[in-house]
């Protein structure tokens, strides 16, 4: 009860702070952050990352607004930041469009805007975008599967894909990346259906796959961890064995704590991270701006590839060698 009350008090305080002009400590950089909301563990980790990095101890004054998935609130929040004359604005845009006007206002006020995670399509009046390269994640999954199949002596790959929500950038990138490797190596992608990034969605699609492609598939690719949990339920019910000692190789994306627990137990063979901790990279951009340098327009975050077995040390993605991390209890503990 106390905790709940505290959470509400903090939220209330944040709102009040957004409304009144800031009296920042002398010399601290004032940063306004308009976050999407708090809809998932991933989002919570993203928020916490910003609060940790842009703390008073580090010489920042963070003005945080939780926009609760309301685009209108988010635009108002940005206008509020302009009013307060903050030094930098960070936006995780709820919608990809409708930004040009308010970003022009930011530009006129001389406040640099840094976009994180999701993208803005209808304006380029921001300094940098910091986020994940979903296509690289898909490519990494493909490259890992190629190396793993070689190491295990598997010659034929028949894959089933459970996609995320239609049109989401994560869905598009991961599908494209994995397909590129699949096409290059002559793998068969038997089917690719929408599981809506949820466990129930994963269950339903996998249930159908088990009947349509009985005994024909040896790889299942789920585009997030929740779908992988659902696919595991459905395969268990149908008597299909999966994971490290099973007939089917299970690949997942996101690598949240719950996902990594299943990687450790060997139910998921490999899990490809979508890093929510954008703040350190944003701080890097801000430091460059403070030093008068021009940061890159697109900053891709470093991400980790998690596996269960210690048979491959690294994989080569787009010409660069990238390490594979074997999941241990310490790694699960450290994950968001």
């Amino acid at each position: 009860m106390n905790k709940k009350f505290a959470a509400m008090a903090v939220a209330g305080a944040a709102l009040c702070m957004a409304a009144i002009p800031v009296s920042a400590e002398e010399g601290n950089l004032v940063i306004g952050f308009a976050q999407v909301g708090h809809e998932s563990d991933w989002r919570t980790a993203s928020t916490k990352s910003c609060q940790d990095v842009f703390s008073a101890e580090n010489g920042y004054d963070l003005q945080f607004v939780d926009c609760d998935n309301d685009p209108q609130v988010q635009i108002e929040a940005v206008r509020g930041f302009i009013e307060q004359d903050v030094d930098y604005i960070i936006i995780d845009p709820i919608q990809a469009t409708g930004w040009d006007q308010v970003l022009t206002e930011c530009e006129d006020a001389g406040i640099p805007v840094i976009v994180i995670d999701r993208t803005i399509d209808d304006s380029d009046k921001y300094v940098s975008w910091v986020g994940s390269n979903f296509k690289t994640e898909g490519l990494a999954a493909g490259e890992w599967l190629k190396a793993y199949a070689e190491a295990k002596g598997i010659t034929e790959i028949n894959a089933l894909v459970i996609e995320g929500s239609t049109g989401a950038s994560a869905t598009l990138g991961r599908t494209e990346g994995f397909k590129e490797i699949a096409d290059a190596n002559g793998w068969t992608i038997l089917d690719s259906q929408n599981g809506d990034f949820t466990q129930v969605g994963g269950q339903e699609v996998m249930e159908s796959y088990c009947k349509s492609y009985e005994g024909q598939f040896n790889v299942v690719v789920c585009q997030n961890d929740n779908e992988a949990f659902g696919a595991m339920d459905a395969m268990k019910a149908a008597g299909v064995t999966y994971g490290v000692n099973g007939d089917v190789i299970l690949i997942s994306f996101d690598a949240c704590t719950a996902g990594l627990e299943f990687v450790k137990s060997g139910d998921i063979n490999a899990d490809f991270e979508c890093n929510p901790l954008a703040a350190p990279f944003v701080e890097e951009v801000i430091k460059q701006l403070e030093a008068g340098e021009e940061p890159a327009k697109e900053v891709y975050m470093e991400e980790h590839w998690f596996v269960n077995e210690d048979i491959l040390a690294s994989i080569t993605v787009e010409g660069a060698e990238q390490p594979l991390t074997v999941v241990t209890d310490e790694i699960i503990e450290a994950q968001y």
Binding site: E39, D196, T198, Q199, V200
Partner: peptide, 13 residues
């Protein structure tokens, strides 16, 4: 029933 299918409470979905 829906929550029991996934043995969790995914309030968003």
């Amino acid at each position: 029933v829906n929550s029991s299918r996934i043995t969790s409470a995914d309030s968003n979905n």
